[in-house]
Simulated scan of single mutants.
Amino acid sequence: MSTAADRGRPGHFWDPKINAMTQTVLPGFHAVTDEKDLALVTLLGSCVAACIRDPQLGVGGLNHFLLPGDTNGDQKSARYGVHAMEVLINDILKRGGSKGRLEAKVFGGANVIDVSAAETVGDRNSRFVADYLRREGIRITAQDLGGDRARRVFFFPDSGRASVLKLPIADNRRLRNEEMALRSKAQAAPKAGGVELF
């Protein structure tokens, strides 16, 4: 149950649908916590979220990246998968996590933009996250990637529980417009430092 103090924390909200406190993670950001019963929440279209935790310590987090990498070679922004993965893992390790114990669940990569392309942004993001985790030796314990529907992801780092709500196809158009605007900003910006359980 939420308290008045919980409700007053910036970015934290009580979600009656899952009966838990939540913290929203926006595109290009990540969050790490060891707080019991706190769900990290994000909304994904073609973007991908990696949910990574140290199961022994119950510390973990979630990132939300828009593109695998910058074609100009500047990866130092969390909007790109290369940097988003590094900062998430490093923040978990700073809280005492051990790289050898880390496990991941990955979500997103739907084909909601450039759907007629031979390889969509969602496809590239999905392939990138799987390849990255394999190279780093981090085991993927669950995944829900691809398809044509946006997802709302709820991840509880302390327990490792994740739930995914696939949104109606009708929501794809709105999310596609938002993602295309974010993608344009990411590419143009100055380079700067049913519910399924998984």
Rank of each mutant, 00 (worst) to 15 (best):
A39D: 03
L102H: 03
A110T: 03
G58H: 10
P190D: 11
V153F: 01
K76R: 14
I18N: 01
F128H: 05
L88M: 08
H83G: 05
V153T: 05
D171M: 10
A84S: 11
Q56N: 14
A104C: 12
L165Y: 05
A142R: 13
Q56I: 11
R173A: 04
Y80A: 08
R9C: 04
A110L: 08
K105I: 04
L38I: 13
G100H: 05
G73E: 13
R134M: 06
T120D: 03
G96Y: 13
L62P: 02
L38P: 08
G194K: 12
I18L: 01
S159I: 01
V82I: 11
G60A: 08
H83I: 06
G160F: 01
T3C: 10
D171A: 07
G73H: 11
L93W: 12
D74S: 14
A39W: 00
R173E: 10
I169L: 07
E179D: 09
S116C: 07
T24N: 12
K76Q: 14
R173V: 05
V87R: 08
D15C: 03
G8Y: 06
H12F: 11
A170C: 14
F156H: 06
A130W: 11
F156G: 06
L182G: 15
V41A: 02
G108S: 09
A188I: 06
R152L: 14
G109D: 06
G122C: 07
D34Q: 15
I113H: 01
L197F: 13
D6Y: 04
K17E: 11
